[in-house]
């Protein structure tokens, strides 16, 4: 039983990363209509930057968590303005390929600078240790990751669905031309949403630094699973991203307990099944 609870917990943690990453992808996709292939790179940069800040400057986890996501979010906005805006009017395939090319460059450069091996990153002092629940020991850091991801997901959901900024975002997603004719600064919102999505990826990266190995390819491997998660959930809905992210993490964890050989493939098998039954994904509305 001990092992089962452990795997479910680990699954929930992975689910938290899936949720944050697919949430960011959804936010970006809504306005830019591209899949951000650079998402994994920003996740990796979040982890790498916080590890570097600690090693080189002695800046700790909490400051990283506070400042690294906005900083990378700004980088993302700069990237959107310089690279993606000129491609906005073309076939969306080109925008997607541009993010892919950017991802390759960053990945290559970080591999040259830091090698392919992992950098260690210690769990912050205040979150070390764990709670004994009687049937298992619950490490504090894992509880923290799950709670803060859930809270952030809910906050993003409320931001998009309940605030006036969210209303502008939704209006521009629905019909960019009409939103523009109402005087909404759509291209500013596009930049903002790219920054927000990238910031979420970087936040997930900082959260992941003490748990996963901090290495240049950590994002690339995770992203393909996240793409499958997005296909299963359907990219239209914010809620869909959160629910599918967490539940697929759990399912993966359960599979690792019941039949470990299939744990790498279960998400993809589910994706094929969902596509066969509901081609638009579980929460998706219409095809883009």
């Amino acid at each position: 039983m001990q092992a089962l609870y452990g795997q479910i917990l680990l699954g929930l943690i992975n689910g938290a990363y899936y949720a944050l990453l697919s949430l960011g992808l959804s936010v970006i996709f809504g306005l830019l209509k591209i899949v951000n292939f650079a998402h994994g790179v920003f996740f990796m940069l979040g982890a790498l930057l916080s590890s570097l800040l600690l090693d080189q400057l002695g800046i700790g986890y909490w400051w990283s968590l506070l400042f690294v996501p906005p900083l990378l979010g700004l980088c993302g906005m700069a990237l959107q303005i310089t690279l993606l805006r000129p491609l906005q009017e073309l076939d969306h395939l080109y925008g997607l390929l541009a993010t892919f090319g950017f991802a390759l460059i960053v990945q290559g450069l970080t591999q040259i600078a830091f090698g392919s091996a992992g950098l260690p990153y210690a769990i912050p002092q205040s979150l070390q240790g764990g709670q004994n629940l009687g049937f298992m020991i619950l490490p504090n850091y894992r509880t923290w990751v799950i709670l803060v991801s859930l809270a952030l997901s809910v906050a993003i959901y409320l931001l998009v669905e309940r605030t006036s900024l969210g209303a502008l975002l939704r209006a521009s997603t629905e019909n960019a031309d009409r939103a523009r004719s109402f005087g909404i600064n759509v291209s500013g919102l596009v930049t903002l949403s790219y920054g927000l999505g990238v910031g979420l990826a970087a936040f997930a990266g900082v959260l992941a630094a003490p748990m996963l190995q901090v290495r240049p390819l950590m994002g690339a491997d995770l992203m393909i699973v996240v793409f499958a998660v997005v296909v299963i959930g359907g990219m239209g809905s914010i809620l869909g991203s959160i629910v599918t992210g967490f539940s697929l993490g759990m399912i993966e964890g359960l599979t690792r307990y019941i039949y470990p050989e299939a744990s790498n493939t279960i998400v993809f098998v589910l994706m094929a099944l969902v596509l066969a039954i509901r081609p638009n994904g579980l929460f998706g509305k219409v095809d883009p």
């Binding site: 690279l83 541009a98 090319g101 991802a103 390759l104 460059i105 990945q107 290559g108």
Partner: peptide, 10 residues
Amino acid sequence: VIVTQGALFL
């Protein structure tokens, strides 16, 4: 090589 490939993409 990877960096070159990425640059070629762009």
